[in-house]
């Protein structure tokens, strides 16, 4: 799981000792590039379905779909995929209410599903998302887009589209803030740990 990263509540104060690794304009450029990559790889917008993993993945998915509309003038279905009930670490923390799963009306059968999340870390969130997807249908292909890949994979999972590869230590925390979700300017920061 992205662990602490994924359950940082909206608007939580940033660690003042952290350092900024992506500014708002860096995030905007990365997303624009990812939108182009998705379209290029798919040879257009046909059959694409973009699903964000709550909570910040949903915000990113919506932005990607907006960018695809700008570039291609096409309306790509967008939704959200909650993975709470599929997590493999449920026993290790208090339960929390699952978030919303919203699958576009066309479903995902025979579609190319692009999963979107903010931080890729152990890969366990994505493992859970793949399981959740298989309960909903059979996509023709599943691709993965993330804003930040911080390494330390525990499962054989890789992202197809990465905003920024960010080597980190386990002790560090990656904090993502997104306008629209957290109500503040986009920023990605690294905090904690000694490795600078």
């Amino acid at each position: 799981m992205t662990r602490a990263d994924s359950i940082v509540p909206p608007g939580q104060p940033l660690d003042p000792d952290g350092r900024t690794v992506l500014t708002a304009s860096d995030v905007a450029r990365a997303l624009r590039r990812i939108a182009h990559e998705i379209l290029e790889h798919n040879k257009g917008p046909d059959d694409l379905v973009v699903l964000g993993i709550p909570s910040r993945g949903v915000e990113l998915a919506n932005r990607l779909v907006d960018l695809i509309r700008e570039v291609e003038g096409a309306e790509v279905p967008v939704g959200s995929l909650d993975i709470t009930m599929h997590r493999d670490d449920l026993r290790h923390q208090p339960t929390r209410a699952p978030m919303h799963t919203q699958i576009p009306s066309g479903g995902i059968d025979d579609k190319v599903v692009v999963l979107v999340d903010d931080v890729l870390y152990s890969g366990r969130t994505i493992r859970a998302a793949l399981d959740a997807l298989s309960d909903l249908g059979r996509p023709r292909a599943v691709r993965l887009a993330v804003l930040v890949d911080r390494g330390h994979r525990e499962l054989p999972i890789r992202a197809d589209h990465v905003g920024k590869n960010l080597p980190t230590s386990h002790a560090e925390k990656v904090q993502v803030r997104l306008a629209g979700h957290d109500g503040l300017e986009d920023v990605v920061r690294i905090a904690g740990g000694d490795a600078r």
Partner: peptide, 16 residues
């Protein structure tokens, strides 16, 4: 409310 949505799916099984 989220579980109610699962109930409308074809596959109603969760591994939880």
């Amino acid at each position: 409310s989220e579980m109610h949505e699962v109930q409308r799916r074809d596959v109603k099984k969760l591994p939880t």
